[in-house]
Design a protein around this nucleic acid. Structure first.
Length: 558
RNA sequence: GUCCCAGUAGCUCAGCUGGAUAGAGCAACGGACUUCUAAUCCGUAGGUCGGGGGUUCGAAUCCCUCCUGGGACGCCA
């Protein structure tokens, strides 16, 4: 509805400028994209535009003069605008009839779970690849942030009208699997009483000791008789299976469900990597130096070229990644989003460059880098180190603070900012905890509705109420916030910013709590009660929808 | 040395595709439960937007430069 109002204002403004130019009140000029914003201050109207200031330069006129001419030619009979004002350096402020906000009320119960959906994506296919942690270990905090972020982003994009696919890339090939096999073999032999040390570049985590123990329990120790290569391969395959199952289940518990688990090994098996390299070679983007093959990343603006095939003939991770991303586009995605840890930023430009080499637009691949996560407990940093094998896993985190708190904390900050995750705060059942604050609002509404039910009544139909009884400041602000939900979805999807939804939720919950404290919903005034019941039911719907986008539950009781 | 991210209230952060008096939560201080859940609300206080230049009618936002913190610079992934 906000969108409709905005576009009607844009249309009216476009017309007004044209008129003003025709009449010679404003110099001939190009008309920029007209932006209608919601002013920060309530005193500046319901909507505003800086159009006159934008035109000032090209029209070579004072902004206020232009604004006056525009306003003079504005045709607003078809809109809800009650009053227009020129303010400050040349803002045009629109004041709407207060009744405009009542327009949301019928929409929300009617659209229910779909309220907030927009058609920004226009059905375009978009893929979000996230987590993709090495299947050689457990999921850590970085992966957890990626999981929360990726899943919420996918949900938001879906809500914004894209056809979304969630994907996990399994790094089940290459060096680290080799290494994994070696490490497992060491642990295996140690279990059988051999006195050998873990290799330096191996996996020191305790978890693979359990894996090996499990293997021996199931299959005995006859593998010890096999040659080294067989031992490594057998153990690696066994462990991979186990780790992947574990990762899948952990993510499932975290509320993340993938559409596709894509195996790197499959790219080796199908010859896709080889074909990709050949194609690049044919295009002239590959050269040989010191018996290795290099990709000319510098032709696409990167700082240096990058090896794709090592001098030992084995392709690098990058080669596989090129083949993988090419494969994504061949599957028909219009847009591909990767969520990576910031430590991979050096990989971004060459990855985009490689897609450009295949004729795709580099912007079709969008890479979201997220900064590190630091855990705090009792005011102290919880140190994490993969090398020494000491780290808090996603599983442990969910166990400690719960899934809702964990997911909210990961998405409440922009990916760009380092995240300080306060474990004590996340599990505290106090007013400090934003997750509870939001969920409590939902629970409170449900409590009112229960009360209603106990009286044998139900929420009235919108058509049965007199919405114009909702005249309190708190009510109008709530209505307005509800009306803004769809445009909030648009922004969050455009800017790929789930944290905007987290913020929106917090704001909406705040407005509700404020309303709740100063006004009763069920009162002696029957008509007013009816109107308020519809209002709070609408708040319930929007809270629930938004919570759902972040993968959080909407509890009916707390 | 080069590149990326950050630097905004005591703390954690929004705002950054340029707009009006820079916002929120926590912490601090003072208030509000005989009423649908006080896990809540209301109020007060708190700012050279890291420093310095520049572009602009207008800069937290764009450009340059310097400082601080984190990360990346491998024929690892």
């Amino acid at each position: 509805m906000v969108e409709q109002i905005k576009s009607s204002l844009v249309a009216a403004l476009q017309n007004a400028i044209k008129q003003a130019v025709d009449k010679g009140q404003v110099n001939q000029t190009e008309i920029p994209d007209i932006i209608i914003e919601v002013p920060r201050e309530k005193g500046y109207g319901d909507f505003a535009t800086n159009l006159a200031m934008q035109l000032a330069r090209s029209a070579k006129m004072a902004p206020r003069k232009i604004a006056e001419a525009i306003v003079e030619n504005l045709e607003l009979a078809e809109t809800q605008v009650e009053r227009v004002e020129i303010a400050g350096p040349g803002f045009i402020n629109f004041y709407l009839r207060t009744s405009w906000v009542y327009g949301v009320l019928p929409l929300i119960p009617q659209q229910d779970r779909n309220y907030g959906r927009v058609e920004l994506g226009d059905g375009k296919r978009i893929q979000v690849e996230f987590v993709s942690a090495n299947p050689t270990g457990l999921l850590h905090m970085g992966n957890a942030r990626g999981a929360a972020l990726g899943d919420s982003l996918a949900a938001i994009l879906d809500f914004a009208g894209y056809q979304v696919s969630r994907e996990y890339y399994i790094n089940d090939a290459g060096n680290q699997i080799e290494n994994f096999g070696k490490s497992l073999d060491v642990r295996f032999q140690q279990q059988l009483g051999q006195d050998i040390a873990m290799i330096e570049e191996g996996y020191h985590g305790e978890d693979i000791i359990d894996t090996v123990k499990g293997y021996i329990q199931k299959h005995g120790s006859s593998l010890a008789e096999a040659d080294e290569s067989t031992r490594r391969k057998t153990l690696a395959a066994y462990a991979l299976e186990e780790k992947l199952t574990n990762i899948r289940n952990t993510l499932l518990d975290f509320g993340v469900v993938y559409d596709e688990w894509f195996s790197e090994q499959s790219l080796h098996n199908s010859g896709a990597i080889e074909d990709t390299l050949k194609e690049l070679q044919k295009k002239g983007y590959i050269y040989e130096q010191e018996s290795a093959l290099w990709f000319k990343a510098t032709e696409f603006g990167d700082e240096k070229d990058e090896v794709v095939v090592r001098s030992n003939g084995i392709p690098t991770y990058f080669a596989a990644d090129i083949a993988y991303h090419k494969n994504k586009f061949e599957r028909g995605f219009d847009q591909v989003i990767d969520i990576w840890g910031a430590d991979h930023h050096g990989h971004v430009n060459r990855m985009k460059g490689s897609m450009e080499a295949f004729g795709y637009n580099r912007d079709q691949l969008e890479i979201i880098l997220m900064q590190l996560v630091r855990l705090f407990r009792g005011g102290e940093i919880v140190r994490m180190s993969k090398r020494t094998g000491q780290f808090v896993t996603l599983e442990e985190l969910v166990e400690e603070v719960g899934r809702d708190a964990a997911r909210y904390f990961f998405v409440m900050r922009s990916p760009d900012s380092h995240l300080d995750f306060d474990l004590d705060l996340a599990k505290s059942e106090s007013n400090d905890n934003p997750v509870f604050y939001i969920q409590y609002a939902h629970a409170r509404i449900c409590s009112i509705l229960r009360q209603l039910q106990e009286q044998g009544r139900q929420v009235p139909k919108v058509e049965q109420i007199n919405a114009s009884l909702l005249t309190e400041q708190a009510e109008l602000e709530l209505l307005r916030k509800l009306a803004e939900f769809p445009s909030e979805i648009t922004s969050a999807a455009e800017l790929k910013s789930p944290h905007r939804i987290a913020r929106y939720l917090h704001d909406l919950a705040g407005l509700f709590h404020s309303f709740y404290n100063s006004h009763r919903v069920i009162t002696d005034n029957e008509d007013l009660s009816q109107a308020r019941l519809v209002l709070v039911d609408c708040v319930r719907i929007v809270l629930r929808n938004a919570l759902g986008l972040l993968g959080l539950t909407a509890p009916e009781k707390m």
